[in-house]
Design a protein around this nucleic acid. Sequence first.
DNA 1: TCACTAATTGACCAACGGTCACTTTTCGAC
DNA 2: GTCGAAAAGTGACCGTTGGTCAATTAGTGA
Lengths: 207, 207
Amino acid sequence: MARRQQEKSRQTKEELLASAMRLFGEKGFAATTIAEITKAAGYAKGSFYSHWAGKDDVFLEILERKMEEYRRERSRKLSHASSFEEIFNVIWDFLESIMDDMNWSKVFLEFTIHASRDPRLQAELNRSKYRLSNDIFSNLMGKHVRAEIPPEKVGSLNTALFEGFLIQNVLQTNVLNRQDIRNAALLLARAQCDVSESGEPTSAIKE
Amino acid sequence: MARRQQEKSRQTKEELLASAMRLFGEKGFAATTIAEITKAAGYAKGSFYSHWAGKDDVFLEILERKMEEYRRERSRKLSHASSFEEIFNVIWDFLESIMDDMNWSKVFLEFTIHASRDPRLQAELNRSKYRLSNDIFSNLMGKHVRAEIPPEKVGSLNTALFEGFLIQNVLQTNVLNRQDIRNAALLLARAQCDVSESGEPTSAIKE
DNA sequence: TCACTAATTGACCAACGGTCACTTTTCGAC
DNA sequence: GTCGAAAAGTGACCGTTGGTCAATTAGTGA
């Protein structure tokens, strides 16, 4: 049975994926051509299409992997957090680690907008795993959220603040810094959660 | 003196601009081709380039006009506002009118991301007029903002929240609604301004 | 009328995403 | 080893894009 053949195919796919990941990060999604991806990996253009239907699909696969990687990292840190403040800080440490990946946060935004004209991509982005902080807020902070507020709203508000800040980063506005945005997020989260301003340990938060 | 000729040229430019504006709104920036723009206006492709250097430039001109139009509308409403709550509400009524222009808020985001790879466009967007709520917050709400906080930060935070919400709108997430985002913005603005929670008339705000 | 200038045209170019008939490599049966 | 089938890999080719530019048309002032 054609074991070696499958293995070779998998290997090729990995090489193309690595090449695509590097180029997307360096030049962005639109500016990276398929011919570049295959050439950099040492293959012909046609090879690409035996693994993916187009640029969109290879990007979705890369996205999946990146998110998986991010999530793993986040879970590791979250295992030691339980109080409102601890959880909040882990989440924002995590969001800041995404910001550190400056090139990629740019590419994520680029693809998000690109996807907005295509229902398939839109659904893929929404369902799939991109919008990370939504679910995490619901799951982990649900117990803290005030009864009359749907927990997913807390997460979405957080995401909005985060992505709005990403846009300003991308445009190099340089008015807000990370602490500003984190303070704002904390303020909003507190307003939506049952946490006394001084009742719980707030030492981890610098204001 | 070649009056009629200049007039004709201006007319052509207007027609192309109108055509471009319509098509950008309908299909987005990337999906609209220059040939389409000129054909819809009844000209040949080459005509386009005697008025603009490329797609980016016609878009910048359209942006300028749209912003001017938005600003005029806003100024009209602002002339009757003075208190913290009134100003805040006028600003967010205005931001919501931008949201209503659903197609265009999509296109604005698209171009913003597109510009992020091009220093010239980036500078144009930042300096020019896109980021409207920044300056308006500084100018109009400056007197309310607490002394230790740079006024432009209040505006930037507002913009971040607004654009983050735009992204969720564009992706049709449907978790947050306008009231949610407005409440959040109000909460943040209050925290950064010298307004007593109940000292000033707050009747205009529904919470 | 006529020379001059400005407005307008569309064939042309390189580069793109995507297709597909073709060649090369791998494989199991003999 | 041999060989035919199947899989992996190739690159010329297609339609379309943004952008160029020599050629054409129309408006102008004397």
